[in-house]
Every structure is written in C-alpha cells, then in structure tokens.
Design a protein around this nucleic acid. Structure first.
Ligand code: FES
Ligand code: FES
Lengths: 165, 165
DNA sequence: CAATTACGGATAAAATTTATCTGCAATTAA
DNA sequence: TTAATTGCAGATAAATTTTATCCGTAATTG
C-alpha cells in the first residue's frame, strides 16, 4: 500500500492555488519554485489535475494554472485519484481457481470474501479523503503559518502571479 | 496505493490452515501446491507470518505450518501488516519547508493537515480490515464452495497434512 | 546419524515509480 | 504577422520496489 509522492505535491499546489485571486494564475515554474520540487516532474501532476478538471491551464504569455472549480467542490480524494489513479490497491488474482481443489470458473460468481473485504476497506479510505475539501485543507495548513509568513506568501503571490487584464 | 500480491496468497493460506485439525500441519510445498503459487516465494510470506506470530512453524520430518493462535484472534489486517508491512502509504516529505516561503523547522510542530488527513483515512482502512477475523473469512469463502468440492478439500487435507503423534 | 523441513540472507529478474527531455500547439503582445 | 511565452503529449532514461529464486544453515524426527 503506497501512494506516489506526487500526491503530496499536487495537494500542496492546489492549496496554494486556492489562495489565488480569481483573476490570477501561476505558471508551472513558479509553482515548482514555491513548492520546491523539480518542475519537469511537477508538470506531469499538473497535467493530470488539468485532465481531471481540477485545475484550468492557460497557455501562452501570462498563462499558468488556476483552480477550475470552487474549492468547496475539490476533495483530497479528487486530487489523489487524479494524480495517483483510482485502481484498487488490492489485486485479486483469483488464486481460489488454482491448485488441485481450485474452483471452476463458473463456480465463482460472487467476489472472493477476501477481495470484498479489501474493497470495503478501500471504500472507507476513499470516503474519508473525500470528506476533506480544499477550504478545510487550507485552513488546517494555515494554523501553522505565522502572520509574518502569511504576509510574505501574499507578497510573493502578488509578485509572481500572472494577472489577466 | 498498492498492496503486494503476497497478501492474497497469505490470506488464502491462513484460511486453509484454519480448516486444519489441531494436530495437523501443512508443509510449505504442500501449501504452495494447494494455492497454486511458486513455493520459493510463498516461503517468504510464510516466514513473515511466522515472525508475526500468526502461524507456527515446525521444522524437520513431518513439520510444516499451522495457525499459532485461535482464528478468532487473527484479522485480515494482522495478515496484511505482517506480509506487506505497516508503513503508512502516504509519505510526507515535508514540502511545506521548501521554497521561498517555506516554514522553518521549529515552526512546524503539528503534522501537516494533508498528511494528517491521509493518516485518518488509513486508520479507517485499517479498522475495517481489522474487523474481519479469520472465521468470518472462512465462512465467506465457503459460500462459493460446492459440497462436492468441500469433500474433495477435506480428503486432500487428510492425505497431504502431517499429523503429529 | 540420516532424512526432512523451515530459516535467513544473498541474488537476480521484472515491473513500477520517478524524473527528464523534446517537439508541438496555443496564447498573447508588440 | 511575428516573436516570445507557456502548457501538452509522448518518448526516454534512471532509480527504486516488487517479485521470484537459490543456497547454506539450523532444527526436528526417528
Ligand atoms: S481469490 Fe483473490 S482474494 Fe480470494
Ligand atoms: S508537508 Fe507533507 S503533506 Fe504537507
């Protein structure tokens, strides 16, 4: 059970984009600098987020990324699913069909109890992540940010964001 | 988010061992044949289960594996944890410390909200798996097994298990 | 003692994740 | 229209993890 590290980047990126004024966008390289990760790889995650309809990309001069929809409608699961995929973590290879006492293919109609249990557990996992929306995330992160740093972040955004006319 | 396929093997192995009479054991090669997986690799999972105190190994002539404790005390999470490890799936690399507006090390006392959310989700996942004990698993699997096959399985065990004097 | 069987570590092959690069398409402003 | 900028998609390469096997050793039995 492992989650790609790109998810951490993507989540923090979305949290940053949520702070952005409506008429502003942040370019890939700018985002990468802020988060402190290699930009060619972050590009991949941003493309995933874009295809999933979580962020909106604008090309060309003064282009960049911004959120595609209201923060309230973006959950941590949305981000995780977009970047890391939604394929179940438990892979059932139907071992119950193997061996000298294996089940015949037409005998196994219901999913194996073991696989079903994992599916249940994953549902719980997903539900929990899905209950955490972007505003809650931003608020939670902000708890650790001093007023001084809040000011610095605001200034940095002002200076590095691309504002549309 | 991915779980090693060895978990499926280990779970089915434990389900099989739960059917075993108290004075019987199954050797590695015998187990591997029943489940239909390569025995040198299954050996690894069995060693994990052994070290975790889920199965009991007995070396030497007429040796093999049996459950180390009552089936009621063995959960699907116990098996998963033993074989696949218990390291959290989400890896926080503290990106919040990076970049031009990164937090200083002494500023971040509480865990990042993002990481905390994933920890919550994993707790739910683990709790769900932990609620599924071996007897329930065995019963669930048995639903799909015809009476004819139940008889064959019983006979196979009788024939291949090592019985202690 | 001889046969059997699990254990542990080392090793190798395969798959996946992580990271980078390049050419192209879109957008904007001069 | 041209030039500069910026994201997109696919190919590629490096690193890591998963999967699988092997072998020498230790324990157990009779
Ligand atoms: S056959 Fe795949 S989990 Fe039982
Ligand atoms: S710093 Fe790691 S999840 Fe926020």
């Amino acid at each position: 059970m492992k989650i790609g590290k790109g998810v951490e980047w993507a989540a923090h990126t979305c949290a940053l984009l949520a702070l952005l004024p409506a008429n502003a966008a942040l370019a890939l390289d700018t985002l990468a600098e802020f988060i402190g990760v290699p930009s060619p790889y972050l590009a991949k995650q941003m493309q995933m987020l874009s295809r999933a309809g979580i962020v909106k990309a604008k090309r060309g001069v003064a282009g960049g990324y911004k959120l595609a929809r209201l923060p309230e409608t973006i959950s941590l699961w949305d981000i995780t699913g977009a970047v890391d995929g939604t394929t179940p973590s438990f892979r059932c290879t139907e071992v119950r069909k193997n061996g000298p006492c294996g089940a015949s293919s037409d005998e196994v109609i219901t999913p194996c109890k073991i696989a079903a249990s994992f599916r249940n557990a994953e549902d719980k996992f997903r539900q929990e992540l899905n209950s955490v929306k972007l505003p809650e995330l931003v608020a939670g992160i902000a708890l650790d940010v001093s007023d001084e740093r809040k000011t610095r972040i605001k200034a940095w955004i002002e200076q590095n964001a691309a504002f549309s006319s």
